[in-house]
């Protein structure tokens, strides 16, 4: 089980990875969204705000109205933000649940596919 602090640390690293990737920034330049992450084993919630492809902030708690909601176990979410697991495999196994449009789900997966292509 990952703590809230561990997930926040992973999110901070994820933000750095995404924002420093030029190809990803160009690809996501028209993507402005609010994402909620929910760890259903601990009940922790997190809000990620993306503006024109740049992750502006990661906050603890569910703030604002989300465009996408992603639910999973805290460990799964933590490993996902560190880039240590393939989110599509988790999604296709039903271990990650996503609520949002197909376009947004695709975009989220695209982020990890670009920054961690080997996973």
């Amino acid at each position: 089980m990952a703590t809230s602090d561990e997930i926040m640390e992973a999110l901070a690293d994820f933000k750095e990875q995404c924002n420093s990737n030029k190809r990803l920034r160009r690809m996501q330049r028209d993507w402005t969204k609010v994402l909620h992450y929910v760890a259903f084993d601990t009940g922790d919630k997190f809000t990620m705000t993306v503006k024109e492809g740049e992750i502006i902030s990661n906050e603890s708690g569910a703030a604002g109205t989300p465009d996408v909601i992603i639910e999973g176990e805290s460990e799964t979410l933590c490993n996902m933000f560190w880039g240590d697991i393939n989110p599509t495999q988790m999604y296709l196994k039903g271990e990650i649940k996503v609520k949002g449009t197909q376009e947004d789900i695709m975009r989220i997966d695209a982020i990890t596919a670009i920054i961690w292509p080997e996973v």
Partner: peptide, 23 residues
């Protein structure tokens, strides 16, 4: 695309367009 990301099809089929983020 999802099958390729899941390693059920060759990985190159999951390549994304660098401008439109489409497979």
């Amino acid at each position: 695309y999802a099958m390729a990301r899941d390693w059920s099809l060759p990985k190159f089929m999951a390549r994304l367009h660098s401008t439109y983020a489409t497979p």
